[in-house]
């Protein structure tokens, strides 16, 4: 973003990468996949790079409003400086915070989750998928809480899957009843409270019951949780966990 600004240019849309996308090795792959798609679709975009900070979601949900306000207000200043109006992000937590919580702090943007954005690209024919790649393969889709219940987006990801020539098998708990992966509310950053079982194990068992070969997710934290669960069940050879962007990038025409 800074480089473009120095040249006096302003991109159409800002790609908000988020902490997981920036630092988590597995999530980085998702971000690279998404960037490849953006480039293929010739989207004029930029990232904030080192000027991006955590949106503050986990701090706020843990109860630490001070840390949330500090990082959020910092981000809002940065976004103001570059006159950002439109943001796409591949993390539903960043999506929710930027879209729903920054306005009260003075930051108003059009915020789009990458699954919505990808659906738009596919609908507009800016990218297209080679037929048959997933033919006959069963895919199950895990609704993230922050895209699903928190923001009511259930169809965009499913629309994308329907374009992938695969058989979508829903888990017992899906859409509004979708079960959390266990990472939200800053759980990602602490040990579980005492209990019988980890939440991701419960969710992965449900995913395995569908006999799907692929578990599709829309969130880097769900990705970690579901992958851990699959590995703990020793199913990593048979069942792959992918973000929707990855499913598209490998099969673009």
């Amino acid at each position: 973003m800074a480089d473009l600004a120095a040249e006096g240019k302003k991109p159409e849309i800002l790609f908000w990468v988020g902490c997981a996308g920036s630092f988590d090795a597995r999530a980085q792959k998702v971000m690279r996949a998404f960037v490849k798609i953006l480039n293929a679709a010739e989207i004029d975009f930029a990232i904030l790079g080192n000027e991006e900070s955590c949106t503050g979601d986990p701090a706020r949900r843990a109860g630490n409003e001070f840390v949330f306000q500090m990082t959020a207000l910092q981000n809002i200043e940065t976004l103001k400086m570059y006159e950002v109006e439109k943001i796409v992000t591949a993390c539903p937590h960043c999506f929710n915070t930027l879209k729903n919580e920054y306005p009260a702090l003075g930051g108003n943007y059009e915020v789009i989750h990458h699954t919505q954005f990808l659906q738009g690209l596919l609908d507009d024919g800016k990218i297209s998928i080679a037929g048959g790649a997933f033919e006959g393969k069963k895919i199950t889709y895990h609704d993230s809480c922050y895209l699903g219940r928190a923001n009511g987006i259930y169809e965009a990801p499913r629309e994308i899957l329907s374009m992938l020539d695969n058989e979508l098998v829903e888990m017992k708990r899906c859409r509004t009843n979708g079960l959390c992966c266990g990472a939200g509310g800053a759980q990602m950053f602490k040990e579980d409270e005492p209990g019988d079982k980890r939440i991701n194990m419960e969710r992965v068992e449900e995913a395995l019951e569908t006999d799907a070969e692929i578990v599709a997710v829309n969130c880097p934290f769900c990705l970690t949780m579901m992958q851990d669960g699959v590995t703990a069940n020793e199913q990593q050879e048979k069942v792959m966990v992918y973000d929707l962007a990855e499913l598209i990038v490998n099969n673009m025409k």
Binding site: C19, S22, F23, R32, G49, E52, C54, A59, F189
Partner: peptide
């Protein structure tokens, strides 16, 4: 467990204390 996350966001703008630059990916 949450303290490192708070400190890290406060000091480095990331949920994890990682020495890498944010753009490294």
């Amino acid at each position: 467990d949450w303290l490192p996350m708070f400190t890290s966001i406060e000091n480095s703008g990331s949920v994890w204390q990682i020495p890498d630059e944010r753009v490294k990916w």
